[in-house]
Simulated assay, not measured.
Amino acid sequence: MTEDQPPLDPAESLRIIQRERAATVRRIMPDPRLLLWPWGVAWLLGFTVFFLRYGPDDRVYVAMPRWLPSVVLLALMFAAGLISGIVGARASRQVTGLTARQGTMYGLTWAFAFSGMITVLSRLGDQLPDGLANLIWAGSLTGLTGALHMAGGAVWNDRSMFFLGAFLSVVNAVGVILGPGWHALVVAVLGGGGMLVAGLVSWLRMPR
């Protein structure tokens, strides 16, 4: 601003500050749709395939090989993890210091937690009937996902992430109580659908 230009009035100054703040937030915060929608789609499609093959009371709605639901779900979750990992890595380049370290440690927490859980479940799964084994696998991993979301919400002071984790935990508990078959349907519709809705709501709440 030159000396010949009149000073900005307080309202205009506030608008400029808000606009610059919103632009900064958009640069350093990843699009929540790219973080949550891939997982929502993976859960919606993957657990639906599980329900169609391993329905309640061992009912088979769609004939398919026993191994196919696991392969479909794992492939979808791998793709979702790859997408969200790339998006998160790009966003982390914009920040340094404590925030960057928090992001790195939180990402490693997910990797180690899931690796440990999968190792434990692999030792137990082969000793159980298909229905119960699927329930333990899906229930444990879904519960872990909910807990990690709640932990992330606490770390980042993000209420949306915390409440999403709490919602997923409740959905998982309801599904486990209903039993094999029903758990897959509940997690597919409410869990996957909840992630899709959460991604949209978080995106709409971002500063414009």
Score class of each variant (00 low, 15 high):
14 L>A: 11
75 A>N: 00
46 G>M: 00
142 T>Q: 14
123 R>S: 01
11 A>K: 06
41 V>P: 04
137 W>M: 11
139 G>K: 02
103 G>A: 00
127 Q>T: 11
33 R>L: 08
32 P>N: 13
45 L>H: 01
33 R>I: 11
78 F>G: 14
72 V>W: 05
140 S>Q: 08
121 L>Q: 06
23 A>L: 11
126 D>G: 13
68 L>K: 07
142 T>R: 04
145 T>F: 09
44 L>W: 10
33 R>G: 13
9 D>F: 11
54 Y>C: 05
107 G>D: 08
110 W>D: 06
124 L>P: 02
101 R>P: 00
117 M>H: 01
83 I>Y: 11
38 P>W: 03
116 G>R: 06
41 V>K: 10
36 L>S: 05
120 V>H: 07
97 G>M: 15
70 S>P: 02
32 P>I: 09
15 R>Q: 12
86 I>Q: 08
70 S>K: 05
94 Q>C: 01
60 V>G: 01
142 T>H: 08
42 A>P: 03
141 L>H: 02
61 Y>D: 03
141 L>P: 00
6 P>Q: 06
122 S>W: 11
82 L>F: 04
143 G>R: 10
46 G>D: 08
26 R>A: 04
100 A>N: 15
9 D>G: 13
63 A>Y: 14
82 L>W: 15
110 W>P: 08
85 G>V: 10
39 W>R: 08
62 V>P: 11
114 F>P: 01
95 V>Q: 15
137 W>K: 09
125 G>N: 04
145 T>H: 05
82 L>P: 14
30 P>W: 14
112 F>N: 03
122 S>V: 05
57 D>E: 05
105 M>K: 04
31 D>P: 07
48 T>W: 02
106 Y>A: 10
38 P>C: 01
17 I>K: 10
108 L>S: 12
39 W>A: 03
68 L>V: 09
62 V>F: 06
51 F>G: 06
24 T>W: 10
84 S>M: 09
35 L>I: 13
53 R>E: 10
7 P>N: 10
110 W>A: 14
114 F>E: 01
106 Y>N: 15
63 A>K: 05
116 G>M: 07
6 P>Y: 03
97 G>R: 06
104 T>V: 10
112 F>L: 10
69 P>F: 03
57 D>F: 07
96 T>G: 12
149 H>D: 07
96 T>E: 14
26 R>K: 07
18 Q>Y: 00
31 D>V: 09
105 M>S: 06
142 T>K: 01
132 L>Q: 14
137 W>F: 15
49 V>H: 02
9 D>W: 08
39 W>Q: 01
24 T>E: 07
79 A>M: 08
147 A>V: 10
38 P>K: 12
75 A>D: 01
131 G>T: 04
104 T>N: 05
55 G>K: 00
123 R>A: 15
11 A>R: 11
91 A>G: 03
74 L>T: 12
126 D>Y: 09
38 P>E: 03
81 G>E: 09
109 T>Y: 03
131 G>V: 10
